[in-house]
């Protein structure tokens, strides 16, 4: 058992609560979850109404279906949610190094492993709570405005989206462990996002990237079984493991100083 892990995890979760990280992330994802089916349902009607008010404009609107609601859910939660995943971990380690609290805690009986693991797990919990709220809201409104989707399929879809977000969060976390500046950490996370997004459009490679996970999430929500799903999940879990492993390798070799 890692020294001090439980105490550190409790501190991280309390800090996330006190600093309103839970509240902000929860509200953002809740909104993303709600607007997905609501937007899918009413946006076409809104566009139609706007179009008919313009002379000479003809707007052809198809009747929205549950597929549109799922597409919106993927776009909002996996797409916009990436920014939350990139920003959330930026200060996790970097700010503690910058402020000197990391060197204070690490003179106590806490291993650097426990210090990092508690932070990574707490970030995972905050993101999971956010995605869970988005999922519940989206499921409820999709059932209300369209048809109910099988719960298992929708949960599977949400889990794959969460995994894609955790990949990006783990790269910002790596940036936070490498540097002493939260903005530099976001830069590293953003660079990983750009590289993985570019890989995502390559044939034969893209399906194993986080973008491939999101595509697979859409298929799972519709009751389909995507090709190579297990391998895609494993590759993305591997990316998280690589980012966290590199974070530990770097952090375990650093001498910590507070910025004067």
């Amino acid at each position: 058992m890692m020294d001090g892990f439980t105490v550190m995890l409790r501190k991280e979760l309390l800090e996330a609560w006190r600093s309103q990280r839970f509240l902000v992330v929860g509200v953002v994802f809740l909104i993303l979850g709600v607007i997905s089916p609501v937007g899918a349902k009413y946006l076409p009607e809104l566009l139609k109404a706007l179009g008919t008010s313009q002379q000479g404009v003809q707007v052809i609107v198809t009747t929205p279906t549950v597929n549109d609601a799922i597409a919106q859910f993927l776009k909002n939660v996996a797409g916009t949610g990436v920014f939350v995943a990139l920003l959330l971990p930026m200060g996790a380690v970097a700010r503690e190094k910058e402020q000197g609290t990391a060197s204070f805690v690490l003179t106590k009986p806490v291993s650097r492993q426990s210090f990092l693991a508690a932070k990574a797990l707490a970030l995972g919990v905050v993101l999971t709570v956010g995605v869970a709220l988005a999922t519940i809201a989206a499921y409820f409104y999709t059932a209300l405005l369209f048809n109910p989707i099988p719960v298992g399929d929708f949960l599977g879809c949400a889990a794959l989206i969460l995994l894609s977000l955790l990949v990006f969060a783990s790269f910002t976390f790596l940036g936070s462990a490498l540097t002493q500046a939260p903005l530099a950490a976001v830069g590293i996370g953003a660079a990983a996002w750009v590289v993985l997004s570019l890989l995502g459009i390559l044939p034969n490679v893209g399906e194993y990237t986080p973008a491939g996970l999101v595509t697979a999430a859409g298929e799972v929500a519709l009751g389909k079984t995507p090709d190579h799903l297990a391998l895609t999940v494993l590759v993305n879990l591997g990316l998280i493991a690589v980012a966290l492993g590199a974070s530990w390798l770097s952090f375990s070799r650093q001498e910590l100083y507070a910025r004067a």
Binding site: K11, E15, S19, S103, F104, T107
Partner: peptide, 11 residues
């Protein structure tokens, strides 16, 4: 250990 300029969790 007590550091010269101790910094703790302000929250």
């Amino acid at each position: 250990v007590l550091d010269q300029a101790p910094r703790y969790y302000g929250w």
